[in-house]
Amino acid sequence: MTRKRPRGVWSMGWACIACAASGRTEHVPTADDYPDTIVRRVRIDAGGGLGWKLSAIVTPREKTAPWKVVVVTGAPSWAEYWAPALAALPQDREMIVVDRPGYAGSEPVEYVGDIRVQAKALAPLLKARPGQKVLLVGQSYGAAIASLMAEQNPGKVAALVLLSGYFGESGPTARWLIGLGSRLLRVIPRDLRHAVIEVSGQPAQLDHLRAALSRLRIPVHVIHGDKDDFAPIEIAERLVAQTRARRPIRFERVAGANHFLNDEPVGPLLAALEGCIPVRKPFRLRLPRLPAMSWFGAPQARA
């Protein structure tokens, strides 16, 4: 039986402090709960010629799955909180969840504030096997970064999901935490410090997000809980309403859900993501209709 990872803002913050004190990069190492045939931690090279190594967790598969789900997490960026979702994923799906640059086991140690740089660094996650398609998921702060990744890598992303997206305006819980964190920047652990700085500096970068969304030709889905007091659903609704996209953006309101949609049980989350995968229509060969012929080879008159 797997242990329950700390959930919610307070418990995750305390887990981060405990993690920093112990020198771990994972609060509850995934290897303690899952064999590496179910959830495996890997290291990959960052894109953009940055020379960084990124840490991520993946679902190993012997056969190529038709769809690969790529998850860009929020702030703080801890892939391990998606481990239960990876473990519950069906065999015909693959998933990779990354610790973003500057967090957990990913390089660099320093803060990386520019979302365009992060998008370039994370581009290798979009590499797919032959015949495989990618569903790109941006969670919370990662929603803006995922949007840039999709726009910068045309043809590599089949559909984009903005999950509990954070778009520059905080709810009451986030405002209080950011205010407190800003006063304690010198003493709080690195990951919490980077999260506070990231969220505080995001509004100045939202033009990059809006421009990316307006240029995308792929399906875009927004999934948001109506009880989200960290990134209010009204802000996500306003972004969708104001974005002049090339195709309509689908908005899914999740009744009663808060900011952490990847909390257990993970069934509803996986079902919501599955609903964002385009359904391929079966191919039907249609032959042209020929005129009805008489016995003597001449077309019959129609009434």
Rank of each mutant, 00 (worst) to 15 (best):
K127T: 15
L148P: 06
A271W: 05
D263N: 15
L180E: 09
Y34L: 01
I178L: 14
G138D: 05
I233Q: 04
W295Q: 03
L160Q: 04
L206W: 11
A88Q: 05
L213T: 01
A104G: 08
R302F: 14
L184T: 09
L89E: 03
C16A: 12
I277H: 09
V117G: 07
R186P: 01
R193F: 06
G171E: 04
L54C: 11
S106W: 10
H27Y: 12
M95F: 10
S22F: 11
A83K: 03
R250V: 08
H224A: 09
V98H: 08
L206I: 02
D45N: 13
M95T: 01
G102E: 00
L270I: 00
D191K: 06
A121D: 07
W67K: 01
P29E: 05
G131Q: 01
Y103M: 00
A143M: 08
P35N: 03
K156I: 00
V112I: 03
G267S: 06
D114N: 15
H27L: 02
R3H: 12
A158H: 03
R100D: 01
T2G: 10
P101A: 02
V58N: 02
G267A: 13
L122R: 10
A257F: 11
M95I: 00
H221K: 07
G275C: 01
I145V: 06
I17K: 08
L192C: 11
P288W: 04
D229C: 10
L270F: 11
Y81W: 13
V9N: 08
A231C: 14
R246E: 05
A241V: 01
T243K: 13
V254K: 08
L148F: 07
R250W: 13
P268M: 11
V28C: 08
P124R: 13
Q132W: 07
G105H: 07
A88Y: 09
H259I: 01
L213E: 04
G8P: 06
L177I: 02
G138F: 12
P130G: 09
H221N: 11
L270T: 03
A18D: 02
G225N: 12
D228L: 03
E94W: 07
R284M: 05
G297N: 08
R40P: 05
A21M: 03
D226L: 02
L162Q: 14
A231L: 09
R253W: 15
P203G: 15
F296E: 11
